Amino acid sequence: METPISNKEIVLDFWKRAIGQGDLEVAGQCIAEDYIQHSASGKPGKAALLEALAMFKQMPKPENPPKPFLRIIADGDYVALHMLITFGGHTMIVLDMVRLQNARFAEHWDAIQPMSEATAHAAIDGPTQINDLVQTESNKQRITDFAQTVLKEGQWEQAADFVSSGIVTHDPEAKSGLPGWKEMLRRCTFEKTYRIIGEGNFVMTQSRVLQNETPYACYDLYRLDKSKIVEHWRVKQPIPATLLHNNGMF
Results as ranks from 00 to 15, higher is better:
residue 39 S to R: 03
residue 7 N to W: 13
residue 203 V to D: 10
residue 80 A to W: 03
residue 138 S to K: 08
residue 136 T to R: 10
residue 223 R to I: 02
residue 105 F to E: 04
residue 21 Q to W: 02
residue 59 M to A: 10
residue 164 S to P: 00
residue 155 Q to N: 15
residue 144 T to Q: 12
residue 64 N to V: 13
residue 114 P to M: 04
residue 234 R to W: 01
residue 175 K to A: 15
residue 9 E to C: 04
residue 212 N to G: 02
residue 176 S to V: 13
residue 147 A to N: 10
residue 112 I to Y: 04
residue 57 K to L: 06
residue 56 F to G: 04
residue 48 A to C: 01
residue 91 T to R: 06
residue 36 I to Y: 05
residue 201 N to V: 08
residue 175 K to P: 00
residue 186 R to V: 03
residue 56 F to T: 06
residue 208 R to I: 01
residue 19 I to E: 11
residue 177 G to H: 06
residue 131 N to K: 13
residue 180 G to W: 02
residue 135 Q to W: 06
residue 242 T to W: 02
residue 155 Q to K: 14
residue 62 P to G: 11
residue 26 V to I: 14
residue 115 M to S: 08
residue 25 E to K: 15
residue 45 G to Q: 07
residue 237 Q to W: 02
residue 235 V to W: 00
residue 219 Y to R: 03
residue 124 I to T: 13
residue 83 M to R: 05
residue 8 K to P: 07
residue 246 N to M: 04
residue 150 V to K: 08
residue 51 E to I: 09
residue 111 A to C: 03
residue 65 P to E: 09
residue 38 H to S: 12
residue 121 H to A: 05
residue 20 G to C: 04
residue 165 S to L: 02
residue 218 C to H: 13
residue 130 I to A: 11
residue 86 T to P: 08
residue 204 M to S: 15
residue 103 A to L: 14
residue 82 H to I: 03
residue 107 E to S: 10
residue 78 Y to H: 15
residue 180 G to Y: 05
residue 227 S to D: 12
residue 135 Q to C: 13
residue 159 A to N: 05
residue 194 Y to M: 10
residue 203 V to I: 14
residue 56 F to W: 01
residue 197 I to G: 08
residue 121 H to W: 08
residue 200 G to I: 05
residue 19 I to V: 15
residue 16 K to N: 11
residue 41 S to F: 11
residue 92 M to N: 15
residue 233 W to L: 10
residue 77 D to E: 09
residue 187 R to S: 15
residue 225 D to P: 01
residue 232 H to Y: 15
residue 183 E to K: 13
residue 155 Q to W: 11
residue 36 I to T: 10
residue 104 R to Y: 02
residue 85 I to K: 08
residue 70 L to C: 13
residue 147 A to H: 07
residue 68 P to S: 13
residue 227 S to R: 09
residue 168 V to A: 10
residue 132 D to S: 12
residue 177 G to P: 11
residue 169 T to G: 15
residue 125 D to V: 00
residue 40 A to E: 04
residue 241 A to T: 12
residue 170 H to M: 14
residue 33 E to C: 13
residue 16 K to Q: 13
residue 19 I to G: 03
residue 3 T to Y: 01
residue 238 P to G: 02
residue 14 F to C: 09
residue 147 A to P: 03
residue 181 W to V: 07
residue 117 E to G: 06
residue 208 R to M: 09
residue 190 F to A: 04
residue 132 D to P: 05
residue 2 E to P: 13
residue 157 E to G: 13
residue 153 E to D: 09
residue 128 T to W: 01
residue 195 R to L: 01
residue 61 K to W: 04
residue 192 K to Q: 14
residue 46 K to E: 05
residue 71 R to L: 00
residue 229 I to T: 10
residue 197 I to N: 07
residue 11 V to R: 00
residue 49 L to D: 02
residue 17 R to N: 14
residue 136 T to H: 07
residue 95 L to T: 01
residue 141 Q to E: 13
residue 174 A to H: 12
residue 7 N to S: 11
residue 13 D to S: 15
residue 117 E to C: 00
residue 241 A to C: 00
residue 90 H to C: 12
residue 118 A to S: 14
residue 169 T to P: 07
residue 57 K to T: 03
residue 1 M to W: 11
residue 47 A to M: 11
residue 58 Q to V: 00
residue 82 H to E: 07
